[in-house]
Amino acid sequence: MIIAVPAENQSLDSPICQSFGRAPFFCIYDTGSESSRFLDNTAKEASGGAGIEAAQLLVDQNIDALITYRLGENAARVFRAANTKLLKAVNLSIADNVANFLEEKLASLEDIHSGYHHG
């Protein structure tokens, strides 16, 4: 199973980024091989639609699950179309969140926000 996590730094010890669309990096963790890699979030500087672009980036990595603190409704629509599992991050490192996920301790993400759009 492939899990994506918005990351502050390119390390499994990194905290999870509070923002989804504007996260600097995404950690892509493969539970089969227990390996991780980090992607630059090319959407982080977008003037608008960052959530959609970041979601497209991750869906294209064929991820099965996303662990995040928050998610906007547009990005959520992309992940729902892709049947991606959406899970609520806890205030721990990426590695600890992945461990919690594998022990099925993470709640599903319910509070989808309406975005931070501007004119």
Partner: peptide, 23 residues
């Protein structure tokens, strides 16, 4: 189309196009 959209109003999931008209 989705790669070219400057406003990211389009996404493609499982070969299906999603449109975000408000974007």
């Amino acid at each position: 189309c989705s790669d070219a959209c400057a406003f990211k109003a389009l996404a493609v999931v499982n070969k299906k196009l999603l449109i975000f008209p408000e974007i």
